[in-house]
Computed example of a mutant assay.
Amino acid sequence: MKDLLAWDQTLFKDSELFELDHVPEHFLHRDAQLQSLMYGVRPALCGARPLNCLCIGSPGTGKTTAVVKVFEEIEKHTPKVVPVLVNCQVNSTKYAVFSQIFKKLIGYAPPVSGVSFKKVFNEVAKYLVEHEKVLVVALDDMNFLFYENEVNDVLYSLLRAHETHTGARMGVIAILSDTGVPHILDPKVETVFLPEEVRFPQYTKGEVRDILSSRAKLGFYPGVLDDSALDRTAEHTFALGDLRVGIDLLKRSGLNAERRASRTISLEDVESAYEKSRLVHLSYMMRSLKEDEKILLGMISEMQQANSGELYEKFHLQTSLGYTRFYELLNKLGALKLIDTDFTGKGSRGRSRVVTLRYQADEVKARL
Rank of each mutant, 00 (worst) to 15 (best):
Q305D: 11
H131N: 15
C55M: 06
G350E: 04
E150H: 06
V134T: 13
S266T: 14
Y312E: 03
S99W: 04
R209T: 03
L240D: 01
K80V: 02
V189C: 13
G241R: 00
H281S: 15
V208F: 00
F343E: 13
S36E: 13
I101D: 06
R351N: 08
H316C: 06
S348Y: 09
N91K: 12
K294Y: 04
R278F: 01
L4W: 04
Y323C: 06
V112P: 07
S157F: 06
G298R: 10
K365R: 15
G167F: 02
S214F: 10
I56Q: 14
V136W: 14
E196L: 10
I300A: 03
H236V: 02
T356G: 04
F98S: 06
L85H: 13
R259C: 04
H281R: 07
P111I: 06
I173M: 13
S214I: 01
E25L: 14
E313T: 05
A48T: 05
K290H: 05
A109K: 12
I56E: 15
R278G: 02
T64V: 12
L34D: 06
C55W: 02
Y203T: 02
A216P: 05
P59S: 11
E196M: 12
L289T: 11
R232G: 00
D210Q: 11
L336Y: 02
T78C: 09
F146P: 07
K346I: 10
A138N: 10
V124I: 14
E75Y: 03
N149A: 13
M303S: 09
I247F: 01
G180H: 07
N149G: 13
G334C: 08
L230P: 00
R358Q: 05
E73Q: 13
G171I: 03
L20V: 07
F98V: 08
V129I: 09
G219N: 07
Q318P: 01
L279P: 01
Y203Q: 03
K63C: 13
S157L: 04
R353K: 15
H281F: 03
